[in-house]
Amino acid sequence: MKQIIARNFRSFWKISNLIFMGFGIGFVVALSLHLYGKDTIFSFEETVGRYNVDYLTMCAYVFIFGIANISLIIKTADTFTNEIKSGTVKLLFIKPLSRKEILLAKVLGNFLGSLSNLLFCLLMASSLYIAIGNLDIDVAINIYTINIAIFLGGVIEILTILALMSMLAIFIKNNVLFTILMIFILFIGAGVIPVAENIASNTYYDLHLYCFDLSSQLFTLIKTFAEPLNTVIGTYSGTFSTFMMTTYSLNDPDFIIGNSFGSAFKDQIGPLIIMTVYLAITVFSMLASILRYDNMDIS
């Protein structure tokens, strides 16, 4: 099983993927340099006040949405749809492994591979920010911790999307249709933008208060872990409503991002319910995948 995990993990570090990430990083660097010197980009005091951290939003958009998710679509299609179509799945099905193990190994391999890509990209983003932006240690600590928050938010997001993707790939068995459908779903669920903004902004509030208090560093870390969960879940719940509201508020994007259903909902009992719903979607997707995979005839 570990061989399958390792193989899938390694596929995220192939030259093709590194080039892909390179483009993402290059894009962020180019944009950072272009925006360098413009106060609203690198001044936290101003940007947080406006509930908008442009650089982080940009990084989150490029890395979470652009790289982690698109890589996942390609790799999931390769792992499931292509393997069934080309027949290479036979090579695994005749080995002393249950189909459940094979499926979980592939999902886990893809999950870890995607996370490693994401972590690498966010570390790059943080480093770029420090190199190009403000070298103040306060900001340096903040930016890394905020990116950890973005990373953890990405973990939840990747897990949910991966489970959904795996199920669709197994059921659809058609690469083109699968890719179109997944991109469509991702665009509808483009909550990654408000997700990233909310994670960055809300975490920053806490970090800002506790940054130089060593005793509160641990608390900050725990908060960093807890906050993205709430925020991601809250914003996910807001994704659909955001999408709906877009039709009514096209001229007021701040309203959509800043005052969406998710933003208000996350302080209430909503996150628990929504978390349960999203967990249920993930579990349902995985169970459906296992059932289908387990009963699949390959000839």
Binding site: K90, F93, P96, L97, N295, D297, I298, S299
Partner: peptide, 25 residues
Amino acid sequence: AGLLKATSGTITILNEDVSNKNIRK
């Protein structure tokens, strides 16, 4: 080989059902 599931009947390798993953080694 375990790639197709029989509609009925049993297939055993070394007295173990072919659905047993360990037998496939």
